[in-house]
């Protein structure tokens, strides 16, 4: 972003990568695929690079409002300095925080999740599913991220991105507004679960496997971790792939 600014240019959209997308090896792949999609359709985008920092979401959900607002205000200062108007992100937690919780602290932007961007691009005819891997007839089930679905009412965008593949979309018993959490939200990602009968991600993966999918589609780097761990635990890595909507889209287009 700093380079673009120095060249006197402004991006159409800022890609907010997020901590998982930046550091987590599995999520980095999703990050690169989102970039490939943006590049493929010729959108002028920028990233903050090392100027980006945690949105403060895990601090806020853990109850540390101080740390959250410190992070938020620092980020808002950077975003406002670059005159950012539109943001796309691959993380529903970043999406929710910047979209809903930043405006009250002085940061108002149009914020979309990458599945919404993909939906828009499909609707505009700029993105198809051709020239790459065929998902035709494959059984795909989508796991709704809480902060995208229930948190912000986005249920259709990720499904639209899958419909275009001509795949066989199967819904889990608990889906959309009734979707079951992967177990990572509310700062659970960073701690051991309390004692109980089983882990939340195991409960979820059992439900996902009931649909006999070839692909479990995700839209959140934390869900990705939880679901991948679940598939590994059930020893189903060969039969079932856990892929982000961005990865599926990139593959379908041979990017």
């Amino acid at each position: 972003m700093a380079e673009l600014m120095a060249a006197g240019e402004e991006p159409e959209i800022l890609f907010w990568v997020g901590c998982a997308g930046s550091y987590d090896e599995r999520a980095q792949k999703i990050t690169r695929d989102i970039c490939k999609i943006l590049h493929h359709v010729g959108i002028k985008y920028a990233v903050l690079g090392t100027e980006e920092s945690c949105t403060g979401d895990p601090a806020k959900r853990a109850g540390n409002e101080f740390l959250f607002q410190m992070q938020a205000m620092t980020n808002i200062e950077v975003l406002n300095a670059y005159h950012i108007k539109k943001i796309v992100t691959g993380c529903p937690h970043c999406f929710n925080t910047i979209k809903n919780e930043y405006p009250g602290l002085g940061g108002s932007y149009e914020v979309i999740h990458h599945t919404q961007l993909i939906q828009d691009l499909i609707n505009e005819g700029k993105l198809k599913a051709e020239g790459g891997e065929s998902f035709k007839g494959k059984k795909i089930t989508f796991h709704d991220p809480c902060y995208l679905g229930r948190g912000n009412g986005v249920y259709e965008a990720p499904r639209k991105a899958l419909e275009v593949l001509d795949a066989q979309l199967v819904e889990m018993k608990r889906c959309k507004s009734n979707g079951l959490c992967c177990g990572a939200g509310g700062a659970q990602m960073f701690k051991e679960p309390e004692k109980g009968k089983k882990d939340v991600n195991v409960e979820r993966i059992e439900e996902a496997l009931e649909t006999n999918p070839q692909v479990i589609a995700a839209g959140c780097p934390f869900c990705m971790t939880m679901l991948s761990d679940g598939v590994k635990l059930k020893d189903k890595e060969q039969e079932v792939k856990v892929l982000d909507i961005a990865e599926i889209t990139a593959r379908a287009n041979g990017l």
């Binding site: 990568v17 550091y23 990233v47 980006e52 945690c54």
Partner: peptide
């Protein structure tokens, strides 16, 4: 970042 990574490495994914 919620993990122990250096801010300088944030852009390494690229």
């Amino acid at each position: 970042a919620p993990w122990k990574y250096s801010p300088a490495d944030r852009f390494n994914w690229a």
